[in-house]
Computed example of a mutant assay.
Amino acid sequence: PVLPIVTIKSLDEALEHIKDGEKPLAAYIFTNDGNKVSRLITETSSGGVTVNDVILHMTVDTLPFGGVGNSGMGRYRGKYGFDTFSHEKAILKRGFMGESLMAVRYPPFTTKKFEQLKKLTGGRKGFPKFFRHIGVLPILILGVFVGIFIQRFLLRHA
């Protein structure tokens, strides 16, 4: 193992040095200046960042450990490791019910299908004039009472 020691005169120079090379497995910064910490985190890419310590991030089993780019692929430990070494399979299963409504999505495209699609994606209708005149508050109150009635009497006796 080799530990290179590079003399850097400023944070800007350090950030440029990190960005010019391969992405590191870990980046360490020793400072009480929150702005410097934020800049290291946001302006560089690394497997992890440790502030005011070294190597310690490897011992915290609730943190993911792993690199990016040439420093490693993926993360391991706990759920992070499970997610890295697992593959979630996305499955879309179309049923037969309602397929006539969805048939407008598939060729051949006809004038009838185009009209159906326009109805499905057309402009939104407003409230009927009756509701606009009485206001929304009485309807909201009525909805709350209907919900309470359904919960108390219909769902408990089912």
Results as ranks from 00 to 15, higher is better:
L155H: 03
I41V: 09
R105F: 08
T121K: 03
T62S: 15
F130P: 01
V68I: 15
E115G: 04
K79Q: 13
E43N: 02
G147Q: 05
K9F: 09
F82L: 14
G123V: 04
I8V: 05
F114K: 02
V2S: 14
A158G: 12
F145Y: 02
L15W: 07
R39E: 10
F65T: 04
Y28T: 00
K129A: 12
K113Y: 00
A27V: 08
L3F: 05
S46H: 00
V136W: 10
N32Q: 11
F85S: 08
A158P: 08
L120K: 06
G34S: 07
Y106V: 06
G81A: 15
F114Q: 02
V144E: 08
P128M: 04
D20L: 14
R156H: 02
R132C: 09
G66V: 03
A14S: 01
V6W: 00
R39F: 10
L120E: 03
T7I: 03
G69E: 03
P24L: 06
F153W: 14
T7V: 05
T62V: 15
F65E: 01
E115M: 10
S100D: 08
G34Y: 03
F145W: 03
S71C: 05
G147T: 04
I18M: 10
K23T: 11
E13Y: 10
I55P: 08
L63Q: 01
G48S: 12
E13A: 13
Y80A: 15
D33T: 05
D33L: 12
E22G: 13
S71E: 01
K113F: 00
P1Y: 14
G147H: 05
G47R: 03
I141V: 13
K119P: 02
A158L: 13
